[in-house]
Simulated assay, not measured.
Amino acid sequence: MGRQMIKAAASNLLSQSLASVSTPQQGDGVNSDEFEEHGMELLKAESSLNYLCNLSPHRYEAVYAKNLPECIAGEGFIDKYTDHNDTVTVIDPKCAYAVKAPTKHPIYENFRVMAFKALLTAAKTDEQLSALGELMYQCHYSYNDCGIGSDGTDRLVNLVQEMQHRRSSNGQSSSLFGAKITGGGSGGSVCVIGRNCIRSSEEILEIQRRYKAATGYLPLIFEGSSPGAGKFGYLRLRRRVSSADGNMKQEA
């Protein structure tokens, strides 16, 4: 819904810009053809936006954020925008839908991922780990703002924060720096970033014990990275035509 609203707003702004540039001089006598051309190119791209992650955070905040509603009734959205052009969901006219948080999340999340990737190439320092951890925390809470988090993953992330801040308040350097919900989403797994040392492993074990003491459930700990297809191989799907009925089938 948010993407559709942004596209509609961009189309409206583009129409206004096209009308304004038909006059070569602005009221202050300054020719702004070059500025308007640059602005119109952005608006053209935004009026046909395929993915929210293609919109930069600064552009979102500068042009669109202030006009997006926190939520909207399905009936109101349909009346104004007709459809959201999503092939896997159907708008219920009687339901209310969150708009602003789910729109903002992929825009900022794409930036966070790019920043995270760039930081991985930086010098291995506590400042690097702190920045990586902060991006993970931001991701977690942005995801929660969309209404698709879980109590269990929130508790684990909070325990990581408590461990991190407890160390800092005692004048000790922290071994854990950040955490976020991960896996398939909506609960299940939390990814934690920390220093590769015995202390971080001990702190993870303490978090595991504290979680069980509070909930009765013992979280499983996955450590390191899987060798993936390099060790386990892969399956290749090939299409074939059955000579009996002519139907296309897939086989591994």
Rank of each mutant, 00 (worst) to 15 (best):
2 G>P: 01
2 G>H: 01
3 R>N: 08
4 Q>A: 11
5 M>Y: 00
7 K>D: 04
8 A>K: 11
11 S>G: 15
12 N>Y: 09
12 N>E: 15
13 L>G: 00
13 L>W: 00
14 L>D: 04
15 S>E: 12
17 S>M: 12
18 L>D: 11
18 L>F: 01
21 V>N: 08
21 V>C: 11
23 T>C: 10
25 Q>K: 11
25 Q>R: 11
26 Q>D: 14
29 G>Q: 02
30 V>D: 04
32 S>M: 14
42 L>N: 11
43 L>D: 03
43 L>C: 05
43 L>S: 01
45 A>F: 05
45 A>Q: 13
46 E>Q: 10
49 L>Q: 07
49 L>S: 09
49 L>G: 07
50 N>P: 00
51 Y>P: 00
54 N>Y: 07
54 N>F: 08
54 N>A: 08
56 S>Y: 07
56 S>F: 08
58 H>P: 02
58 H>L: 14
58 H>I: 13
59 R>Y: 01
60 Y>W: 05
66 K>R: 12
66 K>L: 07
68 L>Q: 02
68 L>M: 01
72 I>D: 00
72 I>K: 02
75 E>N: 11
75 E>P: 02
75 E>T: 07
77 F>N: 04
80 K>D: 06
80 K>F: 00
81 Y>S: 03
83 D>N: 13
85 N>F: 11
85 N>T: 07
86 D>F: 07
87 T>D: 13
92 D>V: 01
96 A>S: 14
98 A>E: 09
99 V>W: 03
101 A>R: 00
102 P>F: 05
103 T>D: 01
103 T>V: 06
104 K>P: 00
105 H>Y: 15
110 N>H: 15
110 N>M: 13
113 V>Y: 07
116 F>D: 11
117 K>D: 15
119 L>A: 15
127 E>M: 08
128 Q>P: 01
132 L>S: 10
132 L>F: 07
133 G>A: 03
135 L>N: 09
136 M>H: 05
142 S>T: 00
145 D>T: 02
145 D>Y: 02
146 C>W: 03
147 G>Y: 05
147 G>R: 06
148 I>P: 00
149 G>R: 03
153 T>M: 06
154 D>C: 10
155 R>K: 15
162 E>F: 04
164 Q>E: 08
164 Q>M: 14
166 R>M: 08
169 S>Y: 03
169 S>P: 01
170 N>C: 10
175 S>I: 01
177 F>V: 02
178 G>K: 06
182 T>M: 10
186 S>A: 13
188 G>Q: 04
188 G>M: 06
189 S>Y: 15
190 V>K: 05
194 G>D: 03
197 C>A: 10
198 I>C: 10
198 I>Y: 05
199 R>E: 14
200 S>N: 03
203 E>W: 04
206 E>M: 08
206 E>Q: 12
209 R>G: 06
210 R>S: 10
213 A>R: 10
215 T>K: 09
216 G>T: 10
217 Y>S: 15
221 I>E: 06
221 I>V: 15
222 F>V: 11
223 E>Q: 15
229 A>I: 13
230 G>A: 14
230 G>K: 14
233 G>R: 08
239 R>W: 02
245 D>N: 10
246 G>A: 01
247 N>F: 06
249 K>M: 09
252 A>P: 10
